Amino acid sequence: MANLLKPLVLKNINLSNRLVMPPMATSASQPDGKVSKEIIDYYDEKSKGGYIGLIVIEHSFITQQGKASDKQLSVADDSCIESLKVLANTIQKNGSKTVMQINHAGNAAKKDVTGMEPVGPSAIANPRSKSGIVPKELSQHEIATIVEEFKNAAIRVKKAGFDGVQIHSAHGYLLNQFYSPLTNKRTDKYGGDTLGRITIHLEIIKAVREAVGPDFNVSLRLGASDYNENGTTIEDSKIAAVEFEKAGVDLLDISGGFSGYNIPGADKQGYFYPLTEALKEVVSIPLILTGGITDSLAAEKLLQDEKTDLIGVGRAILNDSNWAKNAIEGLKK
């Protein structure tokens, strides 16, 4: 059997294969962040036939201050739960499993979207933003509030019937901002070395795990390198990944930090594989690899060479809703 076709048990989730559709923002929610017909139709089309083992729903804001863009999905209050139930059920009845990604944009948020001043770990502008706006440094009391907001969002995800929840710490958003020395210059317990900079992550994981219980799947998307000489490196991520596993994370989804979902000059399929390969040496939980994978044979080779446990295919599935079907059927022959 081809590696991509092999099932995998992730705690409470029985995946039919190793193919993952990673989170990709549709910017198609209703103005208040609730699920729209357009979003239901989109995920219905992508999940038809259950050819994708796991679908990760696009990043959804946990609080108004952390909203990244207009028409971003919301998981910020209980009124979202009913429409999210429809979304989860739509995907599951098609045969795929689904988890929801929850996020706070931090200093990547804009006042004209949120109506509020952007915040961050330190008063340092986001390196990915051209605005140059300096955020307000979060107090410890405000950090405690954000931990609570992540917890409450995870509870809503579970109530909506999703198979798991994913905490977003990549692509230059708030948790990535705490993780990266580019934007975290704090001198309290939330700053300093790698262990200090992941304190907020560990508090969130603990709060989420206690809230959703031991049997619900909790994953984390980690921007495992900033690809910047002063930013995070794979050595930081080895330390972080070990701590995340200890804290109760069931699955790590590996991507870039302030480099975003790209690496400058990368052209090989699965270009984040040096990160997953290194992390596989230090953790026993499964890893998802993404990064420009457009060919099922390339995906198969990455699994065969044990670079990763699961393969995330984004743009190819975005551009062609039959990609997964063609890939899976092709490998069965």
Results as ranks from 00 to 15, higher is better:
Ile52Lys: 09
Leu54Phe: 07
Ile55Lys: 11
Ile57Gln: 01
His59Tyr: 14
His59Phe: 11
Ser60Leu: 08
Ser60Thr: 09
Phe61Ala: 06
Ile62Trp: 04
Thr63Arg: 10
Gln64Asn: 13
Gln64Val: 13
Gln65Met: 07
Gln65Tyr: 06
Gly66Lys: 02
Lys67His: 02
Lys67Thr: 00
Ser69Cys: 09
Lys71Trp: 14
Lys71His: 14
Leu73Ser: 12
Leu73Ala: 12
Leu73Gly: 11
Ser74Gly: 13
Glu82Val: 13
Lys85Glu: 06
Leu87Thr: 08
Asn89Trp: 14
Ser96Asp: 04
Val99Ile: 15
Gln101Glu: 15
Asn103Gly: 09
Gly106Pro: 00
Ala108Cys: 08
Lys110Asn: 14
Asp112Thr: 12
Val113Phe: 06
Val113Ser: 10
Met116Trp: 01
Met116Thr: 11
Ser122Met: 02
Ala123His: 02
Ile124Phe: 05
Ala125Gly: 13
Gly132Thr: 05
Ile133Thr: 10
Pro135His: 05
Glu137Gly: 11
Leu138Ala: 03
His141Ala: 15
Glu142Gly: 05
Ile143Tyr: 05
Thr145Val: 15
Val147Ala: 10
Glu149Ala: 14
Phe150Met: 01
Phe150Cys: 02
Ala154Arg: 10
Ile155Cys: 11
Ile155Ala: 10
Arg156Tyr: 01
Lys158Asp: 03
Gly164Cys: 04
Gln166Ser: 09
Ile167Met: 12
Ile167Thr: 00
Leu175Glu: 08
Phe178Asn: 02
Tyr179His: 06
Tyr179Phe: 07
Tyr179Val: 05
Leu182His: 04
Asn184Phe: 05
